[in-house]
Design a protein around this nucleic acid. Structure first.
Lengths: 396, 396
DNA sequence: ACGTCTTTGTCCTGCGAGTGGAGAAAGTTG
DNA sequence: CAACTTTCTCCACTCGCAGGACAAAGACGT
């Protein structure tokens, strides 16, 4: 199948494509209610979109008391690839143009093996998904990487946990391999876009999306747009000082948030606690599995292990303190907590909330929901698909 | 003189007005180079602006090798009033449409006396400026207040240091008194806009403007636009925790940045040091003036007083630590330091820089200038004038 | 079965925004 | 005084778009 190459010719068409993406199949009349255009002009633009093949007719809708409308929808054959590369695992998903996930794979992975090895694996996963008949090819792909990205070029810059990726032309290389347009962004930004598109952050203009996984990052959305900063490192809150003269961090400083709480730090603390005999629960798990992860702590906590609960609470307090500062500074309308440690659930959330509501000013916290992400591990890939669709659904 | 009431009729006219405001008198040809319009269309819009009186002819320019051009400029009779209400003083200035300060008054003031008393004083100052012949009336006014503002309505909300102002309809009341359109904003945001318009932040899209006066606040500019947050309290960094279990703060918490460093905190520390006999220099000043201010500390430091230098350095370290966190989070292209303590000069700046460059990641700090504001006490009033001119120079 | 009302979609006319070229006006330079 | 530049004005033409007339298609009451 030859892939779609057309792009909207003007802002109206771009708007229409996004309405169809976010609202599903729709009639001309309904589209007219959502866009500021006369019916005549609207019809012209829809016809042009039909000609390009981006949009197809979709039968007749039920009558609403008069003549039945002819529905149109985005071409159901369009396929986007969403890739979310984490520090220790990778998610690859295929979506249609409405960004519905049609297939999803998750595999362990070590980013430190470098871009070549990683992309080999990612392409194999994409091929596997394609082989199931979900797609014959891709019309676009969005890629998330766990580090700062020079966004316009789609190139990672000085990523601390991704040695070997610095300056690697991810966008160009993957575009060549996949034969379709590619956009690259920080994984945290994609998570924010995912929750914005299909999760808890719908209809919120300004919000923060804190992702706590192997490391800690924060997606910043201002006026509906992701804020990436001057060098693409905005949201890099893992190395904010949380504890004066605290633990040494890989970055060379002491007391960084990431050194005191993150998936990695939590696992290390749990092993320590188990070895010191503080928790029989954790010790058992350590012996059984030969190591501990954040998931073990979550399970132990769920089983009522006091030490695990303490670890989670203490970590939540640290993160909460930093978030409290960010809330005072940024005054968001919503804070989303996501990432691998979402499994720690409400114990973590309660600790964070306590800190934020106690430390920030009432005006900033009065109407501020602090919630867990709704999409879990699919937030990243949905955000990735959204990234490339936003790009392709904009005038060329 | 009847004031101007016209507004630009469309986006082109708005754009032209802003070009004339920021670039001064200009010919049609030069305007054509800066705007994406054909000469014919441009001429039409300029003619319409001439008809409204917002723009007037300004003679012939020198030849550039051919026919001399007819210059146009903003009506030189237009007058904006810029008001910057601080905690302990107020600045009032009159500008022309190009935002050049024509007259400027500064008087001590106590905001706690409430809006009625304050506005009486402000209106008297405005009348005084008018009486000098600078203006016969005002075409618009911008007002800055030291607290959060619900921006669309121009109403302060829950301002901690301004009891009695909560919910007072500043915009409406002043608009009535002055007989012209009024816009209200946080004083810190106005300082940021001032530095953006005529100071160090020209041509920078994303920057932070930290104002250290009686309190501490931070103006946030994203993509050239001030970010005010969901409830108008964005940038309220004075109550971020800088010292765990630190000094008690007026807000009820402990260790707030403002409790450890600000104009007020510095003055208090200086008195303490003088009374403990740590500094002869400060003790002398305390005796002479019957009290100490940040300016005294600045003077003592300039005279080489070690205790004063230490106070400034320690304070700078505290602020620097918080700014380091904000830099990691926001990744700005510039950080501006301003406000009353600018007099502390490079001792303060050096301490801040040290902290930021040491604690934030290289990618975020690599090309990050941290500089003192260029406009000093006029930043606020220029920002205020800019605020109202942005409003009036937008399509109605 | 029929007329009336509602909703949807198409066609057509007309207005205003905007482009681009021709040419006049006003300079400079040799 | 001729040749070249720059600026400004005027005019014809295109195109985007609104808005109304009208046709198509269905619901509903009589």
């Amino acid at each position: 199948m030859r892939r779609m190459t057309a792009r909207p010719a003007n802002a109206h068409q771009a708007r229409l494509l996004k309405l169809l993406r976010d609202g599903g199949p729709n009639s001309r009349a309904q589209l007219g209610d959502q866009i500021d255009l006369s019916r005549s002009k609207l019809a012209v633009e829809v016809d042009r979109l039909l000609e390009t093949g981006l949009v197809v007719a979709d039968g007749l809708a039920a009558s609403r008391g008069g003549r039945r409308s002819h529905n149109v929808r985005l071409n159901p054959g369009l396929r986007f690839l969403g890739v979310d590369i984490g520090a220790t695992s990778v998610d690859v998903a295929v979506t249609n143009a409405e960004l519905e996930t049609l297939g999803h794979l998750n595999q362990p992975l070590d980013v430190r093996e470098g871009p070549v090895a990683v992309f080999e694996q990612v392409l194999a996963m994409a091929a596997k998904l394609r082989a199931t008949g979900l797609a014959e090819g891709f019309d676009g792909a969005g890629i998330g990487v766990p580090g700062p990205v020079r966004f316009p070029e789609g190139v990672p810059v000085a990523p601390p946990i991704m040695p070997g990726w610095d300056g690697f032309p991810v966008r160009e290389a993957l575009s060549q391999e996949l034969g379709c347009p590619v956009m690259v962004d920080n994984d945290v930004n994609l998570m924010a876009m995912g929750e914005q598109h299909a999760g808890v952050a719908r209809s919120v203009g300004d919000f923060l999306c804190v992702k706590i996984g192997t490391g800690i990052g924060c997606g910043i959305v201002v006026g509906g747009q992701v804020h990436r900063g001057t060098t693409g490192s905005a949201g890099d809150i893992g190395h904010i000082q949380a504890v004066p003269d605290g633990r040494p961090c890989a970055c060379g400083n002491r007391g960084c948030l990431e050194a005191h709480f993150s998936g990695a730090a939590l696992a290390r603390d749990a092993v320590e606690a188990a070895q010191q005999g503080l928790s029989a629960e954790l010790a058992t798990r350590l012996e059984t599995n030969g190591g501990l992860t954040a998931a073990d702590v979550a399970a132990a906590a769920a089983a009522g292990d006091a030490t695990s609960l303490d670890l989670i609470r203490e970590g939540g307090n640290r993160v909460g303190q930093v978030i409290a500062g960010l809330v005072s500074f940024f005054n968001p309308g919503l804070v989303v907590i996501g990432g691998g440690v979402t499994g720690l659930g409400h114990t973590l959330l309660a600790a964070i909330r306590t800190q934020v509501y106690r430390q920030s000013l009432p005006l900033a916290t009065g109407n501020l929901p602090i919630v867990l992400g709704e999409l879990g591990p699919t937030a990243g890939v949905i955000g990735a698909a959204r990234l490339i669709s936003d790009h392709l659904f904009s005038p060329a």
